[in-house]
């Protein structure tokens, strides 16, 4: 009885294709323009602070360093956008649009609904990354970039744990916040803060220890291209993700389901508050 899983995966097929192709095109373009960059960068001395700010311990004048800063340092954001859409849509989205009522009135446990939706997004993001990796597979063999396809596969797969972490965070926010909008806003806020904390901590020595608070530090951008996957970091990211899934499950199993139009209630409350302020002023 995996119909929720199947439906959930089918619902995101165009996102998988769209985001996947975007990743593939960006990846292939980066690889193909590398020879031109290499010639220009050959004699360039990047100042250490700037180097650090680029978000990688790799030299930008090498193939892996170039791919790290041009691709792996920021493309997880694309995946995370998808993750936030899925995470907030799974519960809060269905609740807001009112379809959760009919779904949960079927003989299926809330836990099963949630687990199937999580499984669909795990597979969905893996498929997306696979489509994205295809961009490298059709470009790397033709360009002298000093990166193996195995390393590329590692680095692409390494984008999954951080994606799933933010998916799980959004899922939890979506099962506790009063509406999908609030949940998405909260999740995007956390993603943005985490990203900038990591880049700033890289560049400013006094803030260095802050980087340990950011999932992007544990993600490590293009490092897997040269060092392989850091398994402790993967375990940490997935552990936090699993914790958020547990929290989401706990919240979702315990609470009442709102009838459709939860968003309207929030708007109504805001309007009331504004009315009160106008009245007071």
């Amino acid at each position: 009885m995996a119909s929720v899983f199947t439906k959930s995966l089918r619902d995101q097929k165009w996102q998988i294709v769209g985001f996947g192709i975007a990743l593939a095109v960006i990846g292939a373009l980066d690889v193909f323009i590398w020879p031109a960059y290499r010639d220009a960068l050959q004699n360039l001395q990047v100042p250490p602070a700037l180097q650090a700010f680029l978000g990688s311990d790799l030299s930008i004048a090498t193939g892996p360093g170039f791919l790290s800063s041009e691709f792996f340092s920021w493309t997880p954001i694309l995946l995370i956008v998808y993750a936030v859409m899925q995470g907030t849509g799974a519960i809060a989205g269905e609740e807001g649009s009112g379809t959760l009522d009919l779904l949960l009135s079927q003989p299926v446990a809330r836990r099963d609904v949630l687990v199937q939706k999580v499984a669909a997004t795990c597979l969905g993001s893996a498929l997306m990354v696979t489509v994205g990796a295809a961009g490298f597979f059709v470009s790397v063999p033709f360009v002298d970039i000093n990166v193996t396809l195995r390393a590329i596969t590692m680095a692409m797969a390494n984008m999954l744990p951080i994606t799933l972490l933010f998916f799980a965070l959004s899922l939890w926010l979506g099962s506790t916040a009063p509406s999908r909008g609030v949940a998405a806003g909260g999740a995007i806020g956390v993603v943005t803060a985490a990203y900038f904390v990591n880049t700033l901590a890289n560049g400013v020595r006094s803030l260095d220890s802050l980087k340990y608070a950011s999932p992007f530090y544990y993600y490590g951008a293009g490092l897997p291209l040269v060092r392989g996957i850091s398994w402790p970091h993967v375990v940490l990211l997935l552990g936090v993700a699993a914790t958020f899934v547990m929290l989401a499950l706990r919240a979702f199993e315990r609470r009442d389901v709102a009838t459709g139009g939860g968003d309207i209630d929030v708007l109504g409350a805001l309007r009331l508050r504004r009315g009160a302020r106008l009245h007071g002023g």
């Binding site: 119909s3 379809t99 009522d101 009919l102 009135s105 079927q106 003989p107």
Partner: peptide
């Protein structure tokens, strides 16, 4: 139990038959 909610909302992008298949899949 067969249930028709007062505020009936269904998956807009589905065809009626697909929706019935989906509901059928639970029983």
């Amino acid at each position: 139990v067969g249930y028709v909610p007062g505020d009936l909302r269904m998956y807009e992008s589905m065809r009626a038959g697909e929706f019935l298949d989906f509901i059928d899949s639970f029983r």
